[in-house]
Design a protein around this nucleic acid. Structure first.
Length: 561
RNA sequence: UGGGGCGUCGUCAAGCGGUAAGACACAAGACUUUGACUCUUGCAUUCGCAGGUUCGAAUCCUGCCGCCCCAGCCA
């Protein structure tokens, strides 16, 4: 392999390398700054892995966990808890560095007065509609507010009275005095503070005016000594305002904002606004529905932190708008689970098989490997008896070419058990196959034929008398369209929901060792895929397994030919 | 008709003037008590297009074309 080839470094790491080499910085300090207004999703995972990953890569570095909680009308404590839990679950640690933008409200306020005092900010009485009108359009410059030239004294007085609660919500704002004719709309005297009587999850009713993101973010970064402030592309236009803010305030340092492309995943949506809509309209069971691209959903589905981190490394980092193929995510979880998941046998759609020459009432405990490549994972015992279940798909009355499984007169191997041969097919009145009568070869115990006889197929099975019933949930992509955001006229992303994204199978039969499987423990159900017991709904006596991902299936492909 | 970005294989993504990395996907084959895993092999004469500079260009210049973001008192 290319073990000698240095892995290519992304543009952000190159910038950091230079800053370290030039002595601009001695360590790197990043931050992950979510707004607590929803659950984290796979797109956030990219940012988390980047920011916390950087802190781990560079000496003496750290990553701050910071909530951007400047809009109490949308934010909730439930979200901060879920976000913290998700970041931790992903495997990252902010140590002592947990912050809230709301911790800086006092400092932010003082800085605002400083801006007023230096003539860089003013109180504006225009209504929201008027502000929009005065802002101009993308192609036409805006015009200056009639309140733009108030005296420092008047501005200070008004701003203090805004804080004191003398004016109703929305009646006045504090604006930066920059340039109403700028081609960059963010620079057309952006609003810095608005009056908003909403109870804040941390500061309660202490404030009735709240700072805006564009004002809060650069200052929070500077106060924390952030060196590199990484955000997504849509904030590129905001960078001049980020810099303006820090240039006009006596802040301790001036972090560099760098933007990268957000992650988009095919056949799903990655936007809190849309995800919350799916939850609120009942299209999914909740934020942690296993079909959701949320961290908690993916987790419940059976993905591991290791797989998600590997995925985030593999997708790369650049400024191209991109839609990553779901196949990469699936590759990452298969790679991880193939290595670590114990194997087990589970029959999802049972077909009864009676082994006519096997003694009734007899039970054998056969030995099975927990992992074919890793003997250290040990062995277990699987009961075998006269009546077993096999997968309906593993039998065909009229098998096509290259079908290696069971068919009339054909012999296959029951994994870890015996060779059996199909002697008779039992059907019901409608002609549906309901049972198979087979014979077994006692000499093939364990699955090896002493006479060297070969069989093409090996199938999984479970002893009917010992099987444990389970419910199994098969998940598929949530949307039928690769980019649901790209909706046709008159439609929205929800018109592309996949009606078969969840198929619930009941009456599945699993081997007895699975009876007490712990939630989130990943298993490979041999020949089928990776599954885990649902952390919400599964319990002993009522097993519920989620299919995390299928195994690669080359038979599916040859079958189609 | 404004401002800011981006265009390299089906999907991500290296490359930054010296003659197209890698990964996923896909295809073919080997192995196999999971049609899994693993292994082997193949997969961009070409870098949005057109000119130009140069011995030499995906890389430099010019002009087009296409896509994304911005007009919240959201972040």
């Amino acid at each position: 392999m290319s073990s000698d080839a240095a892995p290519s470094r992304d543009f952000i790491r190159k910038i950091i390398d230079e800053d370290l080499a030039s002595g601009k910085h001695k360590e790197v300090v990043t931050r992950f700054p979510p707004e607590p207004n929803g659950y984290l999703h796979i797109g956030h995972a990219k940012s988390i892995c980047l920011n916390f990953g950087l802190a781990l890569e560079f000496p003496n570095s750290r990553c701050h966990m910071r909530f951007d909680d400047t809009n109490p009308s949308k934010e909730e404590e439930e979200y901060v808890q879920s976000i913290l839990a998700d970041v931790q679950w992903l495997g990252f640690d902010w140590g002592e560095h947990l912050y809230f933008a709301s911790d800086y409200f006092d400092q932010l306020y003082e800085y605002a007065e400083h801006l007023i005092q230096t003539g860089k900010a003013y109180v504006c009485d225009l209504t929201p509609d008027e502000i929009r009108e005065y802002r101009g359009t993308l192609t036409a410059p805006g015009k200056e507010s009639p309140y733009r030239d108030r005296t420092v004294e008047e501005n200070l007085d008004l701003f203090r009275r805004m804080r004191a609660g003398e004016f109703p919500d929305g009646s006045r704002v504090l604006r930066a005095k920059i340039d109403m004719a700028s081609g960059n709309i963010n620079l057309r005297d952006p609003v810095l503070y608005r009056i908003l009587r909403a109870s804040h999850h941390r500061t309660g009713d202490r404030w009735c005016l709240y700072p805006m993101y564009d004002y809060t973010h650069p200052i929070s970064d500077a106060l924390e000594g952030i060196t590199h402030s990484l955000c997504t592309l849509e904030f590129e236009d905001h960078r001049p305002l980020y810099d303006w803010t820090l240039d006009h305030l006596p802040v301790p340092c001036h972090p560099r904002q760098i933007e990268f492309a957000r992650l988009n995943l095919a056949y799903t949506v990655v936007s809190k606004r849309k995800l919350i809509k799916l939850v609120q309209h009942g299209h999914v069971s909740g934020w942690d529905d296993p079909r959701m691209p949320t961290i908690s959903g993916i987790r419940r589905r059976g993905y591991t932190p290791e797989a998600i981190r590997a995925f985030c490394e593999r997708i790369g980092l650049a400024k191209n708008d991109s839609i990553v193929d779901m196949a990469l995510l699936e590759y990452c979880i298969r790679e991880d689970l193939n290595e670590r998941a114990p194997r087990a046998m589970a029959v999802l759609q049972p077909l009864k098989v009676v082994i006519t020459n096997y003694p009734a009432g007899k039970t054998e405990e056969l030995t099975a490997q927990n992992h074919p490549q890793q003997p250290e994972m040990g062995q277990r015992t699987v009961p075998f008896s006269r009546e077993i279940y096999i997968e309906q798909d593993d039998f065909m009355e009229q098998p096509p070419k290259k079908f290696f499984r069971l068919a009339p007169g054909r012999e296959v191997r029951l994994r870890y058990a015996y060779f059996i041969k199909c002697e008779e097919v039992v059907k019901d009145a409608s002609g549906k196959v309901v049972e198979l009568c087979c014979t077994y070869d006692p000499a093939t115990i364990g699955g090896a034929a002493p006479d060297g006889r070969k069989v093409k197929g090996t199938i999984h099975w479970v002893s009917a008398a010992h099987a444990v019933a389970a419910e199994v949930r098969l998940y598929d992509r949530l949307f039928t369209k690769e980019n649901p955001d790209d909706a046709e006229e008159g439609k929205d992303f929800r018109d592309y929901l996949n009606p078969e994204s969840l198929i619930t199978l009941t009456g599945c039969m699993v081997e007895p060792s699975l009876a007490n499987s712990a939630p989130e423990q990943g298993y490979q159900f041999e020949r089928q895929g990776y599954f885990c017991a649902d952390r919400r709904d599964s319990r002993p006596g009522h097993l519920v397994f989620n299919r995390t991902v299928t195994l690669r299936d080359s038979w599916e492909k040859t079958k189609e030919k």
